[in-house]
Design a protein around this nucleic acid. Structure first.
Lengths: 220, 220
DNA sequence: AAATAAATTTAGGTGTGACTAAATATTACT
DNA sequence: AGTAATATTTAGTCACACCTAAATTTATTT
């Protein structure tokens, strides 16, 4: 049975292995807010499941099997559709939808998923700009660059903001770095890795690495 | 902590004690699809909770405390708002919403509850005609009569259909006994307890007790 | 290369909410 | 009233998903 807990593991493993690396026990434990020993136990269970949901060798971290990835993508699709629905249709604030979506994603039916997808016109991105897997769980690979990689003279469009923290999201909103917004890099200090960024033709602002590494853009 | 399981017990006890009786272990076990021994265990836990959620004396069944009733009404409000939302806004069929609402009712936030209530204009009844507790959890007491209690010559308006079974609900819909519909009793056979009912000025139909005891009406 | 530090796993334990089987209390029947 | 039937409870187990503490493996220093 694919429990809420299992779905949370799969979703997190998907996220941690996006870069091609394996997901370590500690990284999973931190992200899930669970003791490392508990993660080992669950990971062994996922690897022993029939069909197996993860590849696992002791001390080597885990990756998703094809089946595990499908299951993860299903949950991710639901999560992102829910976030979109909450903002677009129910009038939630964008900084506030993550928690609600995290609870709903485990209980909605296939019908519910289809109904909200249709109501939204099969959106391709959620309010934070994350791509939404389509009904066949295909996830568009988009060539996005972290804002932190840009240098003076470059222009770009904000694609997504990678954070679930309401306070962080509110701050980003206040700065105006929302998906779709145009920006230009005015200056860069390689000592403190601050960027001076002109956002939406407003006066330039200084953006620290803690923010710029969580904003993904498409370079012009 | 008020778990999903506890909320299901409270909701069911509320339902079984609506007539002023106590809820028996067996009745709860049947309704919840759980072994009677398991019900005893849970009921003792609910009675020992601080504050207690049920009144319980061995072999005497249970009733809700004031606290238990509040908790039950909160879940019932969410359930009925959800059913209404699924039908009205997402286009679900009315026979199909119970199961989905049963899963969602345990995970939605206060904000979600408020948002859908507002979107629906604070409805007073769900698609089956059940009254929805208001935001302060007050449940209007409506003087409804089972259709089975009517006799020839009486006219009435359908108030609600008490069933969660999709097949039953589809049948009731086909007959046309939906909330709001007008009916007149043409005949009664007290051997088989069948009623001949003219529904919405259509040719009269024979309705058995299995159906008529689940339809509640307001008599003219 | 050995010693230390960090990450991971094993071992053993907990609470929740179910289960079955057996014991006991209540109710119904003759 | 006494017995049989039914309802309820007790006793003992189980799976799940977590925990802590201790042992082990891997990685990093010196």
């Amino acid at each position: 049975m694919e429990t809420t807990s299992i779905q949370d593991y799969l979703k997190t493993i998907f996220d941690l292995t996006r870069d091609g690396e394996t997901a370590s026990t500690t990284a999973l434990a931190t992200r899930l807010g669970i003791a490392p020993a508990s993660v080992t136990g669950m990971v062994q269970k996922l690897a022993a499941a029939e069909p197996p949901l993860v590849h696992y060798r002791k001390h080597q971290g885990v990756t998703l099997t094809a089946g595990g990835e499908q299951a993860a993508l299903r949950v991710i699709r639901r999560h992102r559709l829910l976030e979109t629905y909450l903002v677009t249709t129910l009038g939630y604030a964008w900084d506030n939808v993550h928690e609600e979506a995290c609870r709903l994603e485990h209980v909605i039916s296939e019908e519910f998923e289809a109904k909200i997808a249709a109501a939204l016109g099969n959106p391709e991105r959620d309010p934070h700009g994350d791509p939404i897997p389509d009904a066949d769980l295909r996830l568009p690979t988009d060539p996005s660059t972290p804002l932190s990689a840009l240098r003076p003279g470059q222009g770009a469009t904000v694609l997504m903001v990678r954070s679930d923290d309401p306070a962080f999201l509110r701050h980003v909103e206040e700065i105006g770095l929302l998906p779709g917004v145009e920006l230009h890099i005015k200056n860069y200090s390689h000592f403190d890795q601050n960027l001076e960024v002109e956002i939406d033709s407003q006066p330039a602002r200084v953006i620290g690495l803690a923010i710029s590494c969580r904003i993904f853009v498409s370079v012009h």
